[in-house]
Computed example of a mutant assay.
Amino acid sequence: MKGRVVLLDTLGGRRSAALMVDGRLEDILIDAEGEAPMPGAIHRAIADRPMKGQGGLTLTLGGGAKGYLRNVKGIAPGQPMIVQVSGVAEPGKAVPVTPKPLFKSRYAIVTPDAPGLNVSRRIRDEAERDRILEIAHAAMAGAPPDHGLIVRSAAAEVAEEALAEDIAAMRDLAASVMADARGGAELLLDAPDAHLLAWRDWADPDPDEVIEAEGSFAAHGVLEAVDAVLAPGVPLPGGGRAYVEPTRALVAVDVNTGADTSLAAGLKANLALARELPRQLRLRGLGGQIVLDLAPMPKKDRSGFEQALTRAFREDGAEVVMAGWTPLGHFEIQRKRDRAPLASVWPKNL
């Protein structure tokens, strides 16, 4: 299978989407079971009491769900506020939320309380940027003055009418939701499902083909690819191998060189892991604390490894913090939990 192909399927009654690039699985989305709040959902929440010593605040989201807001001050218990679920909770914990919701579409992001119009820096042609800004200014006319707009890179070369309609839809949705701040805890806007996320976030570059059909995962090799992803072992170019193993506290990644135990082989395996790790974490839906137990390599090569890893995560778009080297020589990363682990949502009977 050549090119960039989006597959839309249903597994166990839940919407699912896969992105294949030249026959290789690059991303997968599966709707979670149950009623737990998922990233992107917007709630009118009610503030509970601050958590002393933690600088955070729990909130009631409605339906028995709880949210957790970090680093807040000046919010009284019982105060209503609009928040957006920003990540996936660990078992038994409140879901993380943010008081700065974003309204995302295929081409635009409306930003309440952050005025201004901006165009993605990935659109570099000045004439195209000017065209998009002109359309955006007209489409945002009548929006609340504190609402801003970011035009996404997928908007490049999009017809004026389609782009204006997309922006206007998000403008009106944001204005409607943000005006509904009074009342009890309530879900105001549900999280996007897997098919909507695929349509929205896999648009740049445009897929060569979109296949929406029952059984498309089985027909195009997704099931076999997921079997490989769910296994801990990851083969690396050059004969090395990594093992990605989540625990309750952290995700451990071990890198081995295979039969070649030289320092040169260690550096080669570590660089291969740096290039592959963002994809592995994305596909597996893993985040939180990531600890890398790398193959032996000279200390002088550490900076080169860090640069390769930073570049790979930048291209991936994941929200990560490079915590750095530990006294024992491990490298630590903090990655945002932006989706449920694949192992927890993948149907068991496939």
Rank of each mutant, 00 (worst) to 15 (best):
K104M: 04
R131W: 08
R49S: 13
F331E: 08
A265H: 08
V321M: 03
P115Y: 12
S153V: 13
P39N: 03
T60R: 15
I82M: 11
L19D: 08
A252H: 06
L294V: 11
M322Y: 15
I75Y: 09
T58R: 12
L133S: 08
K104E: 06
V222F: 07
V6N: 10
V119Q: 07
G240N: 09
K299V: 09
Q334D: 06
W325N: 12
P237T: 07
A168D: 10
R129G: 01
D301L: 11
V119D: 07
Q84E: 14
S176K: 15
T310F: 05
D193F: 09
A127W: 02
L283A: 07
V151G: 00
P96F: 04
P144G: 06
H147W: 10
D125N: 14
F217A: 11
G64E: 01
L309G: 08
L283F: 12
L163P: 01
V244H: 01
K336C: 06
L271N: 11
V83Y: 13
D338S: 04
A139V: 12
P112E: 12
F217N: 00
I82Q: 12
K100M: 02
G53T: 10
A343M: 00
R152W: 02
A138V: 04
V222H: 03
E160W: 04
W346Y: 14
L102F: 09
G233V: 11
K52L: 14
V158K: 03
E128R: 01
E332G: 02
P101Y: 12
A185N: 04
H137V: 13
V321F: 02
A143S: 15
D201M: 07
L69K: 05
E209Q: 15
A179T: 00
D113T: 11
G3V: 13
L11P: 10
R302I: 03
M178C: 06
G53Y: 05
S262D: 02
N256M: 09
E214I: 08
Y68L: 06
V95P: 04
V251M: 02
K268P: 05
G184Y: 14
M170C: 05
P232S: 01
D48Y: 00
A155C: 10
M297W: 08
E157R: 15
Y107K: 09
I30K: 03
L273G: 00
G329S: 06
A139D: 11
V88Y: 11
H330N: 10
L19R: 00
I132R: 01
F313R: 02
I290E: 04
R15H: 14
T60G: 15
I75T: 13
P347R: 04
W202V: 05
D190R: 13
A156D: 01
G67K: 02
I290V: 15
G53N: 01
E157D: 15
S153G: 03
L223C: 12
W325V: 04
